[in-house]
Computed example of a mutant assay.
Amino acid sequence: MRVTFLGTSGAIPTTQRNTSSVFCNRDGDYLLFDCGEGTQRQMMRYGTGFAIDHLFVTHLHGDHVLGIPGLLQTFDFNDREAPVAIHTPAGTRGNVKQLIEANGTTPSYPVRINEVSAGDTVLDRSEYEVRAIATEHRCTSVGYVVAEDDRKGEFDREKAEEELGIPPGPKYSKLHRGEAIEHDGRTVEPEEVVGPPRPGRTVVYTGDTLPTESVVAASEGADLLVHDATFAQDRADRAAATAHSTAAEAADVARRAGVRTLALTHLSTRYAGQADTLGAEAREVFDGEVVVAEDGMERHVQFPD
């Protein structure tokens, strides 16, 4: 799983940072989270490609959605035929539709606008799902969790071959699938040679939010938490007034949730050239890995084991 930060600035772009967007390549499934102005150019610049079928919107502030019309128009120019699904918080479908049709045209391919609420399974695939989670901002908002299913336990080939005398072949596959086999006059249960299920990977993207218990709960044990970190701690009052988080508050969420890596994003333009200040504050609170996201940064999310 590879996560590419396409836009990491808060509210308005800078010469170094575009507005909010995060691209996730989950083993060939391309998922886009938020789509600030200029996102399509960032997708070209950082080589993610345009082959997305699902766009997940956290809320409708301009720095998270103004790139949608241009991206959809580019799809049209490229003769796209496949449908696109836009997932957006409950009650905002009409606004998204108006945004798409603002120039007086509609895409020639199907565009489905799906309203979601916290707790919904937004996308259900055979090996993973995307869920909406509750966040707290100045408007209707959600965050998203990409959560993989548990993987099969490790197969103990040495025990199967040397202790139980089972030769390599189809019986190994059956055991690894959880099926018992007959060998040398007895039944061999899968548990004898297959370990417990191993966890998949989990990525959490909050969008804009105050630090919330819902995000702590949804991020428990996550491999990557991408969290709003608009301000440094000396601007905590400003963060609270605008329903954002400080870097230290994001780090406290990461600490309490026990995540592996915290990525700070949506950085205020006041920290242009000083982003390390936010990283330093976060590291005082959270002793896991802290990265200050930058446009074009890629994170390869490894399996926990």
Rank of each mutant, 00 (worst) to 15 (best):
D295F: 08
S20P: 04
T135M: 12
D228R: 04
R112V: 13
H300Q: 12
D27N: 15
T48D: 05
A217D: 15
S268Y: 05
V22Y: 09
Q233F: 10
R17I: 10
Y144S: 05
G10D: 12
A102L: 13
V65D: 08
T230C: 12
D228P: 00
P304E: 02
T19E: 14
H266W: 01
P199Q: 02
F56I: 04
E127T: 15
S141Y: 05
A250E: 01
D184A: 15
I86T: 05
P211W: 00
P69M: 01
V204G: 14
A263W: 07
G153I: 06
E162P: 01
T269C: 02
E182L: 09
A251L: 02
N114H: 06
A85L: 00
I12D: 11
L278H: 05
V57C: 11
G104P: 05
F77N: 06
V285K: 09
T135S: 03
R93A: 15
G221H: 05
T92M: 14
I113V: 09
V22C: 07
R112K: 15
K174C: 08
T242S: 15
A229M: 00
D234N: 10
G221K: 05
H64C: 08
G143H: 02
A280M: 04
T261E: 11
E162L: 12
G273S: 05
D305P: 07
S117P: 06
V96T: 12
G169N: 10
E192Y: 03
V226D: 07
P197V: 09
N18Q: 14
T48C: 09
E115P: 03
F75W: 10
D295M: 05
A275G: 06
H61Q: 15
F231I: 03
G258I: 08
G273V: 08
I86Q: 01
V145D: 08
R260Y: 02
E281K: 02
P89S: 10
V142I: 14
H227E: 13
L225K: 00
T92H: 09
R41N: 14
A248K: 05
G38C: 09
E182P: 03
E101F: 13
N78F: 13
E162M: 11
D29Y: 13
E158A: 14
E163T: 04
A82M: 13
G178K: 14
N103K: 12
D287C: 04
G36V: 06
M297F: 11
A239F: 07
P83V: 03
E129G: 11
G185P: 08
D76E: 15
V111Q: 01
T74L: 15
E154Q: 12
A250S: 11
D252P: 00
D228C: 06
I100K: 02
D295R: 03
